[in-house]
Design a protein around this nucleic acid. Structure first.
Lengths: 212, 212
DNA sequence: TGTACATCAGTGAACGCGCGTTCACTGATGTAC
DNA sequence: TGTACATCAGTGAACGCGCGTTCACTGATGTAC
């Protein structure tokens, strides 16, 4: 679903920067007010612009949401790249630290945890309600899974482990548990407790039979 | 957090019924419009009343949300009871069927799957944004976990299985995976694929050493 | 059982505020000579 | 480099709609004798 931009002109650097600032502001405002609860005024003001500037850059509020989805995707991929790098550099991490590191890249694309979790949940709900976004959201998830698969494969090799269950099941289990813990952590004062994740890892991995 | 009702009078049967109809309507409207996106008019109309009736029964929209949270809790507990009954009656279910049966009682309290999932997610997000609701929501989750623990204990005994990981970790893993699959199913046309759940169960259970 | 009155539950019109969106404008940036 | 003009990006006032909430009212239910 390619949404035509407001203008077909090549966008100037100044314009791109304004858009970027509006999107960044929207992330924060959406996270704490909700997509429906956030007003165009709040977003514009948080970005340091008037409402007019908003409408000069986005056809309407729903185009912003679309842009934000795309932005989240990009941010997530960048965070994944970064995580791969960190993982390769890390030498003395435990299995669940390594896996949590990998997974963390996939919620909120490296944003503050609470904000990223709430925004993702908000976007998911929004996409669920708009049939037009179902396809886009599925692609988003699928691509995320693909990148996550690469990361986890690396991590396992690095640790000398292999899964005792089919790889794609393992992936879904890890993602599910990570998401769940992150969501509950929003209501706690301390960060998420990694104990359940550790149990899961112990249960679904074993030393690799084929050392490299 | 005990919210005082609009009136302190004992509520008449008629009044109770109106409240009930408004709450039922609100569940459906919240699920597909979002809590913020649903108007008092839509809700009242769906229940077959005027807006005035709404304000005769709830101080304002946020009191309705509170009532709905309480209602969800009650519905969930009732569904849990029912699930226990069904489980005791069932004789020839596989392990993951039994566990999925138990878990299903805990999302949406026996409502249509899609509606229940969306509403729960909506309530969670709402509670996350209102610091005043954090405590109530935590209690809600804690009580749910307690009931789920009872259900799962029964199911395991029935199946002659025990967990290979600490019981409360197992509980969190099961809940996490179930939630995750339910949420993804909203975007698919078919119901959730139980394969990942099956893998999880295989990985974290073993035949019980202490037969009864 | 019937009548007179009091209270209750729900109606629907009205109000005012905030929001999304538009638009005539102005100051900033870019271009041509 | 400087001036004249054209285009672009953002401003802020204005508009109108929909929403939450209020309230004077009416028909329904309950009570007393």
């Amino acid at each position: 679903v390619t949404q035509p931009s407001v203008l077909d002109h090549p966008i100037s650097a100044r314009r791109a920067q304004t858009r970027e600032r509006l999107i960044t502001a929207a992330i924060a405002v959406f996270a704490d007010r909700g997509i429906n609860g956030a007003s165009v005024e709040e977003i514009s003001e948080a970005a340091g612009f008037s409402r007019g500037a908003f409408y000069s850059n986005f056809a309407d509020k729903s185009e912003l949401v679309l842009a934000l989805l795309a932005h989240s995707m990009t941010a997530q991929f960048a965070a994944a790249e970064r995580a791969i790098g960190e993982m390769k550099a890390a030498r003395d991490l435990s299995a669940e630290e390594l896996v949590t590191l990998a997974l963390s890249a996939f919620e909120g694309g490296g944003r503050p945890a609470r904000e990223g979790v709430l925004l993702d949940q908000e976007l998911q709900l929004h996409a669920a309600r708009e049939p037009a976004l179902h396809g886009a959201y599925r692609d988003f998830v699928a691509e995320g899974d693909r990148q996550l698969a690469a990361l986890i494969t690396d991590a396992l090799r690095h640790l000398g482990l292999e899964f005792t269950v089919p790889f794609d099941h393992a992936l879904r289990l890890l993602a599910a548990v990570h998401e769940h813990e992150q969501r509950l952590a929003v209501f706690e004062d301390q960060p998420a407790d990694p104990a359940a994740m550790r149990s899961l890892l112990l249960a679904i991995t074993r030393p690799s039979r084929v050392p490299d």
